[in-house]
Design a binder for these strands. Structure first.
Lengths: 196, 196
DNA sequence: TTGAAATACGAACGTCCGTTCTGTACGATC
DNA sequence: GATCGTACAGAACGGACGTTCGTATTTCAA
């Protein structure tokens, strides 16, 4: 099998496994079984577990950006792009892009107290960039006069993200659909009361 | 050492370890080292890892109830008791009652896709009871005319919990204090705009 | 066709896991 | 003071972990 092709196969499966079992719970043997390879074959591509974890986070970032971030830039900036982001995120979760739910939220809460896991910084970094994106979109909408000028964009980002986190908990409770409904209502309410 | 005393010592340490390493990442050997006992000594109290995990969830429930739930019933019902709950939850997190943050949110998102872990049901059950409590407090406040009659108590619970989840993410990003400030503002805003 | 490089297998290593078993202190009971 | 049961240590097990290494197979260029 060609080098890149095999590496991609491994990573795509590893990302899904990590989203379910956790980034730390990810095991080389488990990945090997899942892609029908030997452990030695996996180690030929990733010299250590830490490097596999780092590559997994990188791949998850690409997937998330492709599913949630990049599509919204085809929409006009401001409020419409902001709404596109919330829609894209709900669609991303509903489509089970990651089998375990939201890869980054799972990883962040799993690793936030484990300093010895190298991938922790990459996860936090990506999460921070996502929050900055929401904040930036809010600033744009304010500049365009679509959201109230006195709105705190950071608080706006906090509340929008919080709704998304709520869905994840409802999902964990086996009430995914109700969670979506509540989160959509909460997000919409946030946008409405933030509008001019 | 007396049976109960030793069992309590083990559980108290195991709860803290599980809140950091995860309920599944908890290991008998790790607990044994932490309490300066042998693995055999631990197994004398808990015949299997699953039973240890179950006891840990039970102990964590007691701790959470003691820190967040029970104190609020010394306050008058309705809006004041609701405010007491949000204050108690922020205090519970700020005090690092669990070293790893919120034990139950960590455990819920860790286990939500792992059906083979028996403790998963207990975690979800306790989480559900907490949400029901918030909802019930909202219903009481509505009945007393302190919150708007047309308010959806389940959505209220969703939004209040979501703010708490936001703090956990901010904590994972190393911005705990900012997270507290944002969550307090969001919670207060929710209560204000839900009031009559 | 031949040679070299890429690619993956399979075995082995030391460590840690959960679990079980035996031995041994200690404290209460009669 | 002998007896008994509790509480724990310590060793051992089979298995999974991450990692390394030697070898076989494939791939492609010369």
């Amino acid at each position: 099998m060609a080098r890149d092709s095999s590496r991609e196969t491994i990573l795509d499966r590893a990302v899904q496994i990590a989203s379910v079992q956790g980034l730390d719970g990810l095991s080389i043997g488990g990945v090997a079984t899942a892609v029908a390879m030997s452990k030695g074959g996996i180690c030929a591509h990733f010299p250590s577990k830490a490097s596999l974890q780092a590559a997994v986070v990188e791949r998850a970032t690409e997937i998330f950006r492709g599913a949630v971030v990049e599509p919204i830039f085809s929409r006009p900036p401001g409020l419409e792009r902001l709404r596109a982001l919330t829609d894209a995120w709900f669609a991303y979760l509903a489509a089970e892009t990651f089998e375990g739910g939201c890869f980054f939220t799972n990883a962040l809460l799993e690793l936030d107290n484990l300093e010895e896991v190298e991938a922790r910084g990459a996860v936090a970094g990506q999460y921070g960039r996502y929050l900055d994106l929401i904040e930036r979109l809010a600033v744009e909408a304010i500049a365009r006069g679509e959201l109230r000028a006195e709105l705190n964009p950071r608080r706006f980002a906090f509340e929008l993200l919080s709704s998304q986190l709520g869905v994840l908990v409802w999902r964990g409770l086996g009430k995914t659909e109700e969670g979506f409904a509540l989160a959509r209502a909460a997000s919409n309410d946030l946008l409405v009361r933030s509008a001019v």
